[in-house]
């Protein structure tokens, strides 16, 4: 435990935790996305409903769910903590600092994009997860809920914007995590950037395709 506290207290340790949790969360997103893509099956939502119904009944999934919850908490708290430390490290601010000439906007807005994604997450959980788990009645169809929600232009638009920001967050986050784990070496930079495109572009695009689909076709 003492070793963990030492690790957590060190700056690089905290970075590694943010990076590791981030990467695990990305892998969750991939699984989540593949499951959800069932929604596009042209069977009136049957497969998707079954998936949504069966999944929570698997014990392992429930355990993973708890782990996932802890991952989020660790990621968010640690990242927020580093943000506070970093603010303090500057001391007096510069009168002029041309940050846009030296770094990318995605790298400087992680706290902002992360915060918005967090708000989205709360709304998203309330809407889909909490509902189905604790307020579901007989004949509850996840597909119907999704359709109803995404057909609502306000919610659909919110979802799409959030996915856009998630892409922003992942664009920096993925390669940053690779850097933190020390695998972003000269030989691998271009490879990581390639995988990065899948992560920051395709994942959010995949998620965003759902509200888009319902907005356009229903």
């Amino acid at each position: 435990m003492r070793a963990f506290i030492d690790f957590y207290n060190s700056s690089v340790g905290k970075k590694l935790i943010v990076g590791l949790t981030g990467l695990l969360l990305i892998s969750y997103l991939v699984i989540h996305l593949f499951g959800n893509l069932l929604i596009f099956r042209a069977d009136g939502g049957e497969a998707f409903d079954t998936y949504a119904e069966v999944l929570p009944q698997i014990v392992v999934i429930r355990i993973i769910e708890i782990g996932l919850f802890l991952l989020f908490i660790l990621h968010i708290i640690t990242a927020a903590y580093t943000w506070i430390l970093n603010k303090a490290a500057r001391g007096d601010a510069y009168k002029i600092q041309k940050k846009n000439e030296t770094s990318k906007v995605t790298s400087r807005t992680m706290f902002l994009t992360g915060s918005i994604v967090f708000i989205f997450l709360v709304v998203h959980m309330r809407q889909f997860w909490f509902n189905s788990r604790y307020e579901a009645t007989e004949g509850y169809s996840m597909f119907e809920v999704v359709r109803a929600t995404f057909s609502n232009p306000v919610y659909g638009a919110f979802y799409i914007v959030a996915m856009f920001l998630l892409g922003f967050h992942l664009k920096h986050g993925f390669q940053s995590a690779c850097q933190t784990f020390g695998i972003r070496t000269k030989n691998y930079v271009s490879f990581i950037d390639l995988i990065g495109i899948v992560v920051w572009l395709l994942i959010p695009l995949g998620f965003a395709s759902m509200p888009l689909y319902f907005l356009l076709y229903f």
């Binding site: 207290n9 700056s11 580093t82 430390l85 030296t102 400087r108 920096h172 940053s176 850097q179 933190t180």
Partner: peptide, 18 residues
């Protein structure tokens, strides 16, 4: 060296590469 950097009150690297 990392420990000393932290004690001196520097911030944490967030890989902006500036």
């Amino acid at each position: 060296m990392v420990k000393q950097m932290d004690e001196d009150g520097f911030g944490l690297c967030s890989n902006t590469y500036a």
